[in-house]
Nucleic acid binder design. Structure first.
Lengths: 219, 219
DNA sequence: AAGTGGTCTAGACCACAAT
DNA sequence: TTGTGGTCTAGACCACTTT
């Protein structure tokens, strides 16, 4: 199912496969020809070339830099799903983790936060917004809302789904609007079941994958 | 970070927000106006409308049906990350699970499968390809390669990342080429560490989210 | 100034579904 | 046949980077 066997592929998809083959012959960070050159060379329109390039960037095979060019991307990094940070995971891959705090403050809980954190509507909630980095490159935007009176987190429910980059996220993450992202939300509680925090993280899908180990529940 | 505050939004993105607002006023399965009508009404080109519609479909807000029209989508379903099936999860959401076997057979292990399953190159490996359904709608394509001599799986390493639908996957899953998908791979072992199977599943990102519960490892 | 990627347009033509 | 979404084109113009 990884190939297009059995389905008629649109022209842009064949272009995409040709370009993917090109990236395999080149190393990471190698530049590939300009869009207008590719359109001529592949006897197609720039629009068609661009659709192929955009998808390859969305899959983490190419990096596109406005004004500079398009380059072969480095492989994805991964992180283990857990409650604490994933910094050690990155180091184990030879990638230097980092973080930049974008905003810290208190906000009044709206109805949604009130329900998630177990505080009254209008009560103050701690809000922290951070940019997570891998080798200095933006990896994710993480927004935490924390109940200021809660204890330490002992367990958490995590959801993972796809989303598309908003203009704001695209700017922060150095990617394009509409590129696929991994949206991870985590709702943590103390051992007593008291809500601690609610974290919403948007990871660049082209750069990140999650890993977790499962045990069979029933045997 | 869910809004476009702070970043200049392209025109198609404002169109997208207007259409999203429209879906909120309508119920699931309600039809929305045709692309050409929207282009006139919103004083833009059909291309711009289509980019907005495509992203909304990728986010699971709209369903587009070739020749029929565009409709408000139903909410995503979710599944728990675990080694056995997710059928009970779906039933708990009032969704009827199903599966259709696409292909069953034996293939000779290539180098990759040999390494993953611990069998010699050229040795036979069981291959099963299935289409997972939710309320009769395609939800995922699942390909399993199994070591025929292995015992029961006791643990598994799971990775979750984004990918884009290939023409073949798009056909099977009733979606469009290039739409964002959740790629889940699972490598299972017995309690003794013997490889059992390797499963590659492509879930429609617009229809599915994963849920898992974590415990803090160190306290 | 020149070259790159990013957005947007207006239109042609195709494929599919309903009438 | 008509209306829908799907693909593709050729070109204009903008934004960013480098020279």
């Amino acid at each position: 199912m990884t190939t297009d066997a059995g389905a008629r592929a649109p022209k842009y998809y064949r272009v995409k496969e040709q370009l993917l083959e090109l990236t395999r012959t080149l190393g990471p960070d190698a530049p590939i020809p300009a869009e207008r050159s590719l359109a001529v060379a592949l006897r197609t329109s720039r629009t068609t070339v661009r659709r192929a390039l955009r998808e390859l960037a969305g899959e983490g095979r190419l990096d596109r830099v406005h004004g500079k060019g398009t380059f072969v991307a480095r492989p994805k990094v991964y992180g283990t799903l857990r409650l604490d940070s994933c910094a050690e995971d990155l180091r184990a891959q030879g990638v230097e983790p980092g973080a930049r705090t974008l905003d810290v403050g208190r906000v009044a809980a709206d109805e949604k936060l009130s329900g998630l954190l177990g505080v009254g509507v209008g009560e103050p909630v701690l809000r922290v917004e951070r940019l997570l980095l891998a080798d200095g490159e933006p990896l994710a935007v993480e927004t935490t809302h924390r109940n200021p009176g809660a204890g330490h987190a002992a367990e958490g429910e995590v959801t993972v789904e796809t989303t598309l980059a908003t203009p704001c996220e695209a700017t922060l993450l150095h990617t394009d609007v509409g590129q696929p992202m991994l949206l991870v939300t985590r709702h943590s509680r103390t051992a007593d079941g008291e809500p601690v925090d609610w974290v919403r993280s948007v990871y660049r899908g082209a750069r990140y994958r999650f890993v977790t180990t499962l045990l069979r529940a029933t045997d």
